[in-house]
Design a binder for these strands. Structure first.
Lengths: 97, 97
DNA sequence: TCCATATATCGGGAAAATCCGATATATGGA
DNA sequence: TCCATATATCGGATTTTCCCGATATATGGA
């Protein structure tokens, strides 16, 4: 759990949006045809108006910071919030800051 | 309280160090001759190895984000943590994130 | 008023972040 | 095997961040 890497990952509105949308997938991704238990399909996040390559990079940043988990299912990759890391980060930040 | 601005301010090791040092001034700034109740004198932070102008810019960033307060006393400017904003930010982040 | 000290701001160079389109890779299905 | 779809990576342009030395401003004291 790299606090500094997480802070940098959070210090970007698009990535913060992604994390927030993942709290209520059914509300924010009504077009997804896969069940939400699998997570949210990467391409769904292009709804923020950014290009596919940019979205992919943001998801990579969130993943490297440990804020999301990903699982490949066939040709898709599904993303979920990593509540464990998020919780641990918040706890540490509350203590450190 | 601009959450995004605060996150950007925190996403830098030098600024995070400054905030942490301010938790225990007597421990981290033994050379300061003014009483710590006034806060910590700006020049004290040059102990991080950065130049005067860079330190001044970091303090400005922290101040604009509301994370520290400053008070001019004579030719010096003293900085303190703004626990109110820090607490509000942590609370909001815990709720939002 | 003149000088010393403390801090802020300016100008600019280097590095990192952001974004894109194009292309590469991976998977699945015909 | 060939093609379509999903995602990752590359190359490059633009913007932002970070840092510095030089200079400007503010204060206090002689």
């Amino acid at each position: 759990m790299d606090k500094d890497e997480i802070l940098k990952a959070l210090a970007n509105p698009a990535r913060m949006d992604i994390l927030n949308w993942l709290k209520n997938p059914e509300e924010h991704f009504p077009t997804q045809e896969h069940p939400f238990e699998m997570g949210v399909c990467a391409s769904q996040f292009e709804r923020c108006g950014l290009s596919q390559s940019t979205v992919s990079a943001h998801l990579g940043t969130l993943h490297r910071a440990g804020l999301v988990t990903s699982k490949r299912v066939g040709q898709w990759i599904f993303y979920k919030r990593n509540e464990e890391t998020i919780g641990a980060f918040l706890q540490q930040l509350t203590q450190d800051l």
